[in-house]
Amino acid sequence: MNLKNLSLATALLAGSFAATNAQAEEPVTVYTVTQHLADFAERLGGDAINVTFPVPEGQDPAFWRPSIALIADYQQADLILLNGVDYAQWVRNASLPRRALVNTARGLDDQLIRTDTVTHSHGDGGEHSHASTATHLWLNFDLATAQAEAVFSALNRELESDLPDSNLDELKADLTELNQLAEALPRGHEIITSHPRYQYLADRYGLSIRSVNWEAGATPTEENWAELDALLDDQAAKVFIWEAEPATAGDQGIQNRNLNSVVFAPGDRAGTDSDFIELMRQNLAALQAALEAE
């Protein structure tokens, strides 16, 4: 073998190694159905993964319908992180690869909150009922911790290597801090929320929460105000929680009813400037101030 051939062979061998390494180091692709799961995955997986949460800002991920092209993207993902409990209803309307699906609520059945069951009859479908389960389980930070552990386990399995345990330990420490902040919230005050999303927060931290069912960000209608006034006639309340920044007229209407108005973003939507932990710190601080205010 002359020098020229030796150089060529060396170059080919080096190229081959480079290609193999590039293939081995290609990040695992992770798609999620909520922003909070995307935040967890990014913190736990770091540079070893590429995380995509494709729900556009301003849309509710629970009821969002992806385009067929986006469903095809989900189908190509190495991992699809689901919240479970029938959150992201579109998941049941398409074929997703079983190998990639990770139900982060698996094993939490006995801690889930069942909501009202309604039985009724109309059309030619006969009598039927719908029972459902409250979906925002991550607002109980113990359950959020269980979800983080499920994500960590799935990432390790997919990467076929061990991510640093410190990644999980640090996230769990932050969630423990959130638990402490939520446990320190003043009790004994009535709270009303703009949407029934806070069942786990109420249940885990002993808060008394009732809900109206208003559209996030929209100006409340006369019917909406009547719904709220009926609740207040039943029992007075101190705090009103919005899930997103309210319209000015909405906020004014709340203040006119002598309620302390506060935004507590659930953390599942895109478009917040903060990651999940920081967002929850802000939420809890704002709620504490509203509960303590005169």
């Binding site: 067929i68 469903i71 095809a72 189908q75 579109w90 309307n93 398409a94 074929s95 109309h122 059309g123 030619d124 479908g125």
Partner: peptide
């Protein structure tokens, strides 16, 4: 089927 009953299934090209 009317009466508010509807649903869908997605088939991707794949």
């Amino acid at each position: 089927t009317g009466d508010g009953h509807d649903n869908y299934w997605i088939l991707t090209p794949d």
